[in-house]
């Protein structure tokens, strides 16, 4: 008898999602990441406005990558109208999209996690791709550094802290940074460019070791804010507070606080709340068959002490 109840419950659990109509599934990245937290809020606010309850799915950890595929497959079994994914790797993202497309489910990319060209080549018809170009973020950071040094012949010593190997933001941001830097400040010296795997303590250790080798380090560019904050602590521990320019990416609350306090120089933000809001709106439009832009580039904003203090930039309303 007891067993029968369990089976009934289990069945109800499995069958139930298929009963709902017009489902929107967003596959996020693991929780614990403030950037995606803001993006999530954007999705939720836009959904509330549209009177829709989106389904948000999270992998337990970003490190395993494969979880994305597992989530995607369980998303497909729920037969939604559209799956929007912030994939950890391009290949897994495309694999997921292919399988979904074969079931007649619309697919879209949020946060520019996969290459649009590759998608086209693999026959994946993305409804839209929204996000900030990662190379552009790196370039923006390089331009900020160059503007700071003014003189084209300046030769600052620079440490680059990369994100996880194999992840587009982790690699493309440093690539964009290096490329732009070479043209703007040809004499700049990159003394170290290492991956801290998005980990705060690893970033801190790399910074401490680099400061040992290069005590007169001028600039640290980290591929995200969490790693930049690790660098902040290493610089502080080495007694070099205020002597090293530290730039991060994402504009998370902690980084904004550090920028306000003068611990970090700047954070390049791609306005995750904005991306979340737009990705939800675009998803609803796509399902209703409205015509939409296939790729939408999110605006970038360089958060500095001055920008935050002035509080005038209209984009700041999207900073959460």
């Amino acid at each position: 008898m007891k067993r029968a109840v369990w089976i009934a419950l289990l069945l109800a659990f499995i069958v139930h999602p298929a009963l709902a109509d017009d489902k929107y599934i967003f596959i996020m990245k693991a929780i614990g990441n403030p950037y995606w937290q803001a993006l999530k809020e954007g999705i939720e606010d836009a959904s509330k406005k549209a009177g829709v309850t989106p389904i948000l799915m999270y992998p337990i950890s970003d490190l395993a990558k494969e979880e994305d595929l597992n989530l995607c497959q369980s998303a497909i079994t729920q037969k939604p109208r559209i799956i929007v994914m912030g994939a950890e790797t391009t290949s897994i993202g495309l694999e997921c999209y292919k399988q979904a497309q074969a079931q007649g489910i619309l697919v879209a990319d949020m946060d520019a996690t996969i290459s649009v060209d590759l998608a086209k080549k693999s026959g994946v018809d993305l409804q839209y791709s929204i996000g900030a170009d990662n190379t552009l973020i790196g370039e923006k950071a390089a331009a900020f550094v160059a503007a700071h040094f003014k003189d084209k012949n300046a030769a600052p010593k620079i440490l680059i802290i990369e994100g996880a190997v194999g992840s587009p933001p982790g690699q493309d941001r440093p690539i964009g940074f290096k490329r732009k830097l070479a043209s703007l400040l040809p004499k700049a010296e990159i003394v170290n460019s290492l991956s801290a795997e998005w980990d705060r303590l690893r970033a801190m250790n790399i910074t401490a070791d680099t400061l040992m080798r290069t005590p007169d380090l001028n600039v640290i560019f980290a591929a995200n804010d969490v790693m930049a904050l690790g660098a902040v602590e290493a610089v502080r521990a080495a007694g070099k507070q205020g002597q090293v320019m530290i730039i991060g990416v994402d504009g998370i609350p902690d980084a904004r606080k550090a920028v306000k306090d003068g611990l970090m120089t700047a954070s390049i933000t791609q306005l995750p709340y904005f991306i979340g809001k737009r990705t939800a709106e675009l998803a609803f439009d796509a399902v209703q068959g409205k015509k939409i832009e296939r790729t939408e580039s999110a605006p970038l904003l360089v958060l500095t002490k001055e920008v935050l203090a002035a509080n005038k930039d209209p984009l700041l309303t999207y900073v959460r």
């Binding site: 614990g32 950890s61 490190l63 705060r200 303590l201 801190m204 502080r236």
Partner: peptide, 13 residues
């Protein structure tokens, strides 16, 4: 203490 933060994703692996 070292990172001046409580990070729930700290030290994976």
């Amino acid at each position: 203490l070292r990172t001046n933060s409580g990070d729930p994703t700290a030290g994976q692996g």
